[in-house]
Design a protein around this nucleic acid. Sequence first.
DNA 1: AGCTGTCAACTGAACGGTTAGTTGATATGC
DNA 2: GCATATCAACTAACCGTTCAGTTGACAGCT
Lengths: 208, 208
Amino acid sequence: MLGSVPADRSARGESAAPARPLRDADATRQRLLEAATAEFAVHGIAGARVDRIATAAQANKAQIYHYFGSKEGLFDAVLGAHANVATAEEYFDADDLPGTAGRLFDQFDSRPDLARLATWYRLERAGSERSIGPIMAANEAKIAAITLAQRQGSVTDTFPPDVLLGLVITLAMAWVTLPPEFENPANAHSTGQRREFVIESVRRLIAP
Amino acid sequence: MLGSVPADRSARGESAAPARPLRDADATRQRLLEAATAEFAVHGIAGARVDRIATAAQANKAQIYHYFGSKEGLFDAVLGAHANVATAEEYFDADDLPGTAGRLFDQFDSRPDLARLATWYRLERAGSERSIGPIMAANEAKIAAITLAQRQGSVTDTFPPDVLLGLVITLAMAWVTLPPEFENPANAHSTGQRREFVIESVRRLIAP
DNA sequence: AGCTGTCAACTGAACGGTTAGTTGATATGC
DNA sequence: GCATATCAACTAACCGTTCAGTTGACAGCT
C-alpha cells in the first residue's frame, strides 16, 4: 500500500533474498509507517495516539522513538513516504490538463487518506519547512511544461502557469476539500459524474 | 448538559445600557467565544488547550464548562457564532456568480481563521451532524436561485446547480485551501491578482 | 437609606485519567 | 560474542473536568 520500499540490505553483503527473519527492522519500520498513515489521516498530529500506532503495527512504542525520534518525526516520515505518490510525474501532461485533472481526481478518490494527510500537514505543520522541497522541485518542472504549452497555444495564457497548476489541483481535489454541507444528499452525484465535472471544468478553464 | 446554553438575559429586565458591572455573564461568554475562536483556529480541537482559552479570555477554566458544557461544546458554539457570517445571503447573487466568487474570496481573505475553523470542523468533527443544518438550508435557496439563472440562460447548464455552487466556493477558497508547496515564492501574486484569477475562473466556468 | 437573604458569576485547587517519551533488561540474528 | 531489535514497565508532565467555597449584584423588607 505504501510507496516503493528500497529495503537497502544489499550493502550488508547479502546475496539472494533470505527468508523473512522474525526480527526485521525494515519490516517493522514499514508496519509502523502504515499504521501511522492510518492514524494520522484520521486524527491528525495532535489527535494521534502513539500507543495506538504501536499496537496497530504490532510493534512497541519505544521502536517509534528508536526509528523516528519523535511523534512529529514519524509524521514527517509518513509524509515523505507518500511524497513520491503525490509528485508522480507519470500522471501529468501539460498538453492534456483536463485528462491530468481526471487522473489526479482518481488519485484523491482512491486514497482519500492521503488527501486528509496533506490537509493535516497544512493545518498543523505549516511553516515547518519539512519535506516540501522535492514537491516544489517537481512543481517547477510542471510549471515549465505548462509555460511551453501556453507558448504553443494549446492552453490559454489568461492565467500564469503556476496559477493554472494550482487551479487544476484545486479542482481535482474539490470534492475532497469541500465541507459536507455542500453535498446535496438528495441529489448526490456518482464518482464518475464528479470526475466528468472536474474534467469539464478544466477544459473550460484552459479554452483559448 | 450540552445544549443548555440559551442565556436569555432579557428575563432580568434590564432597561437601558448600564455601566458594565464587574460580573457580566454575557461579556464573559463573549470573551470566551473570541478567545476560543483564535485558539481553535490555530490548534484545532485536539490541539487546543482549555487553559489557554480561559487565560486569554481573562476568565476561569470552570466557566467554560459552566457555559458550554465541554470542549467540544465550546467548539460547536464557536462554529455556530460564525455560521451567520458563512451563510450570509447578501453576498450571493446567482445572476453574477463571478462577482459572488469575488466577494467570497474577500471573506476568506479577511478572515482566514474562519476558513481554518471550517477545515478543522471537516477533519475533526465530520459526521457529528451539529450546526450544519442551517448552512444546508441556506444552500438550498442558493441552489434554487442558480437553477433559475440556468433556465434563463445566463448560466450554463453543463453543471448541475449544486455542483456549480460547490465549484464557485471551491475556487473562492482555492488559495486558502492549496498547500504551501504550490505557492511559487519567486513569482507570488498579489491579493488583487488572485482575486481576479478567481473571478475569471468562474466566468469561464459558467460561459454558455 | 440601610440591612439582609438569595442567587448567579466566579475562583483556586485538586483529581483521575491519559500521554509522550525513557530505560534497562531480554531475546535474536549473524 | 556482539550488535541490535524488541518489549514491559516506568515517569513526569499534562489536560479535561469537577467541586467546594467566595464574591459581587440586586430585590425586598424595614
